[in-house]
Design a protein around this nucleic acid. Structure first.
Length: 430
DNA sequence: TCTGGGGTCCTAGGACCC
DNA sequence: TCTGGGGTCCTAGGACCC
């Protein structure tokens, strides 16, 4: 019989908050929330902030008073910092296992098969301590025979004080109890909608789902993936560790404006910036695209007149040339823009992506010529070395008014020399 | 006053073909 | 009068994830 794979899920605790705490110890033990772009809503919360009753997704203006009363702190998100620390964590983890999948900015699946002799629980604690020591970020580790069960293990590892951040569910003794104690909506792949439907069927916990005998009904209600989740709960491995770097199939760039915008010229500038950003990402993974779509929307929460529209265009030959994409985006904007609305957001998506070499010659439409290729290469290289938007299309605007507001951002401790953390060594520690 | 951004997978249904 | 059936491809929309 084939030996079972052992999955460990390493997941950072309240990741964005922990990153901020690495550089600012004053944030320890107090309520901290990290805000989305535009300082709109809470995207990450410390344990203390959760205890105040603040939830992920709450708009900042609604919880600001509550936070103040609890002597908490709110910060704008600082993605370059979080990305940097994430790289350090992943590098550390890579050296500790034979195989690993970086699942998100703060999560990785490790294959621990073959390391059983070290004692899985003990080894997981070693991993946890090493990341804490080397990078300064607290993590939890869940271990099991499938990814879905490793997620369950991790959920308990974070919650239970007894577990102290590590739970090994390859030990069958704890498995049923762990599944009984997890609400079905907390199972990976079961969202709010599905959880509601399952409750109507009498399925309330992970254990209920695992032991539900009518598999065809599960297939019908949760579709293929949900049915696989059920199997994974039974210890049947459906999702493998994916080690190949994943090439994106779609690239999106879209952000809310700092203020409502009704001037078409400003919308054009924002659109040009997002197209420029998206095409940079496109070239970064060596792709070009055949489809460009843009959308434009007013603020759905506002009482002012509402408008939403989306149009797309197809290229006969795939492109990754920022100029060509901006030009096409502008003509799409001409199609959907209406005067007299206060707009909140514009967005762009590049899809039908293909590897560059595969672009075929076409009689009717010029494909990217070698000149365009090398121009883009030079621009990307300069921006990579000197910082984003050192060189940008004039269409993006020089001093844009529509830019996001991030008033509470911490410094770029790890990515700008001017903002590196300074410690006064003459000062007494005390 | 102030409500995120960036992704994936699956399914159903229409268009089209033989 | 009888009015097929199977296949592919594409797209929109739903649901989920972090």
């Amino acid at each position: 019989m084939k030996k079972k794979t052992i999955f460990a899920l390493v997941d950072c605790n309240t990741y964005y908050v922990s990153c901020e705490r690495v550089f600012n110890p004053k944030l320890e033990n107090i309520p901290v929330i990290i805000l989305s772009n535009n300082d709109g809503c809470a995207v990450a919360l410390s344990k203390e902030a959760k205890n105040l009753g603040i939830k992920r997704g709450d708009p900042f203006f609604k919880v600001e008073k509550l936070l103040k009363k609890g002597k908490g702190v709110a910060l704008s998100s600082n993605y370059s910092l979080y990305g940097d620390l994430s790289n350090r964590i992943m590098e550390t983890l890579e050296g500790l296992c034979p195989q690993m999948e970086i699942y998100s900015i703060d999560e990785a699946f490790l294959n621990l098969s073959g390391l059983e002799h070290l004692g899985l629980d003990e080894y997981a604690r070693f991993i946890k301590d090493k990341v804490r020591r080397d990078v300064g970020i607290p993590v939890s580790v869940g271990i099991a025979y499938t990814k879905v069960l490793a997620k369950v293990a991790n959920w308990h590892a974070k919650k239970s004080t007894k577990a102290e951040g590590v739970l090994d569910l390859t030990d069958e003794r704890y498995l049923d109890e762990a599944l009984r104690r997890i609400p079905v909506g907390e199972i990976w792949g079961v969202g709010r909608r599905s959880a509601e439907k399952l409750k109507l069927m009498g399925i309330h916990t992970g254990l209920d789902l695992r032991d539900y005998p009518n598999e065809r009904l599960i297939l019908k209600v949760l579709t293929k993936t949900g049915r696989q989740v059920q199997d994974e709960l039974r210890g049947i491995n459906c999702f493998e560790i994916e080690t190949t770097a994943n090439i994106k199939k779609q690239i999106i760039s879209s952000k809310s404006f700092g203020h409502g915008v009704s001037d078409k010229f400003e919308v054009r500038e924002a659109l040009a910036s997002y197209v420029s950003r998206a095409s940079e990402k496109l070239r970064g993974q060596g792709s070009s695209c055949r489809t460009l779509s843009i959308w434009l929307t007013t603020n759905p929460f506002s009482k002012t007149p509402q408008y939403f529209n989306e149009h797309s265009a197809k290229f006969l030959s795939p492109t990754s040339d920022t100029r060509r994409l901006i030009k096409e985006a502008f003509s799409l904007l001409d199609e959907i823009f209406r005067e007299g609305f206060i707009y909140k957001k514009v967005g762009v998506s590049l899809s039908s992506l293909a590897e560059k070499e595969m672009g075929q010659l076409n009689f009717f439409e010029k494909s990217d010529d070698p000149k365009s290729e090398s121009l883009m290469k030079v621009i990307d290289a300069i921006n990579q070395r000197e910082g984003r938007e050192t060189i940008k299309p004039l269409a993006c605007g020089v001093n844009p008014m529509w830019k996001m507001m991030c008033k509470k951002k911490s410094a770029h401790f790890t990515s700008r020399w001017s903002e590196i953390l300074c410690i006064d060594i003459d000062k007494k520690v005390g």
